[in-house]
């Protein structure tokens, strides 16, 4: 029985939250890695693109709520998501036209594009704050739990409760659908294949008659969709605050690099590696250990490698280890 309790505690505090967080990071990292593969620079504005997409989604959610539209038990935000995606796609396409295209035509050094993305980051950050403010916003109006800790205890008779929030389930289901759709698109459609070809060998893609501007535009639209979905899922699961999205940039970059920049499969793996490490390293395992060892063996202090304040240090450490030993990432992305 204690063994089962330990498993339940582990599920409840590590595996479920880390899976949801991993899915959110994976979607974010997919956007970064696609932009990198096609446009060949690390987009520092991606965190703020996520924030912008989420902000628009929240505004539309409020509008729908005011109109009395609801898809209960699911959160209204899911219904608002397409509007958020459309607005974000329009924004990034406009940004590409106004900012990035110039440097692309000039064949500027990638670092200049990174610098430009910092300017874009500032502007998007300003726009997002302008649109929705700097407050912490809760916008999940769906049913809170799929499995409730109290009911779980009553049903199973275990001492340990298991809570499965609906936002976690929604996150995972959405992520699976999105990833499936993305890989279908990249692997099966003409446009998707032309994107991969462009990422593989730009000159040869041009010789084959692939239109670079079209590839770039499609990439931005997909990145905007991924960013908005990732941001909305993150906001539903936790809450929305513009600055938190800026801070997500580090784990997202870490996930993309760990998986191999430019490699979509790697980005997903990287997202889960980062998320599980972050949650496991900052989790206090005392509760789990207490179930597994005799009562008086349980240590008094927390069994925790790092306090939660240092969760960013985890992604950073993994990033450094990967840079030291395998700079192209686990899945061999682009090295140059």
């Amino acid at each position: 029985m204690d063994f089962l309790n330990a498993i339940v505690a582990l599920l409840n505090f590590v595996i479920i939250p880390a899976s949801a967080y991993g899915a959110q990071l994976a979607l974010g990292a997919l956007g970064v890695t696609l932009i990198y593969g096609i446009l060949r620079f690390s987009n520092f504005a991606h965190g703020d693109t996520m924030a912008f997409g989420t902000a628009i989604t929240i505004l539309v959610t409020w509008g729908l709520q005011a109109l009395g539209v609801s898809i209960s038990p699911l959160p209204t935000a899911l219904l608002a998501l397409p509007f958020g995606i459309l607005a974000t796609a329009a924004l990034v396409l406009g940004t590409d036209r106004a900012v990035y295209r110039f440097y692309r035509k000039k064949k500027s050094d990638p670092i200049i594009l990174v610098m430009a993305s910092v300017g874009v980051m500032f502007m998007m950050n300003g726009i997002t704050r302008f649109v929705i403010g700097v407050r912490d916003i809760q916008f999940d109006d769906g049913v809170r739990f799929v499995i409730n800790a109290r009911e779980f205890r009553a049903a199973t008779g275990l001492a340990e409760g298991l809570a499965l929030r609906s936002t976690q389930v929604i996150t995972l289901v959405t992520a699976v659908l999105v990833v499936w759709a993305l890989f279908w698109f990249l692997g099966r459609t003409r446009t998707g294949k032309s994107m991969r070809a462009f990422s593989d060998n730009e000159d040869l893609a041009l010789l084959s008659g692939i239109n670079p501007e079209r590839v770039v535009a499609v990439t931005w639209i997909i990145a905007a969709a991924l960013a908005t979905i990732a941001g909305t899922l993150f906001g539903l699961d936790k809450s929305f605050k513009a600055f938190n999205y800026f801070q997500l940039l580090l784990p997202i970059f870490a996930a993309a690099i760990v998986g191999g920049l430019g490699n979509p499969l790697g980005a997903i793996a990287g997202g889960f590696v980062i998320a599980f490490s972050e949650v496991a390293v900052t989790f206090d395992f005392r509760k789990v250990v207490a179930y597994l060892v005799p009562g008086d063996w349980t240590p008094d202090g927390p069994i925790q490698l790092l306090s939660t304040e240092y969760k960013f240090a985890v992604s950073f450490t993994i990033l450094i280890i990967v840079l030291l030993f395998r700079p192209t990432g686990i899945f061999r992305g682009k090295s140059t």
Partner: peptide, 17 residues
Amino acid sequence: GLRSDYLAIATLGIGEI
């Protein structure tokens, strides 16, 4: 000694830490 954007990302990390 790696790609130029890796330094940017690594410094972003050390800054936050």
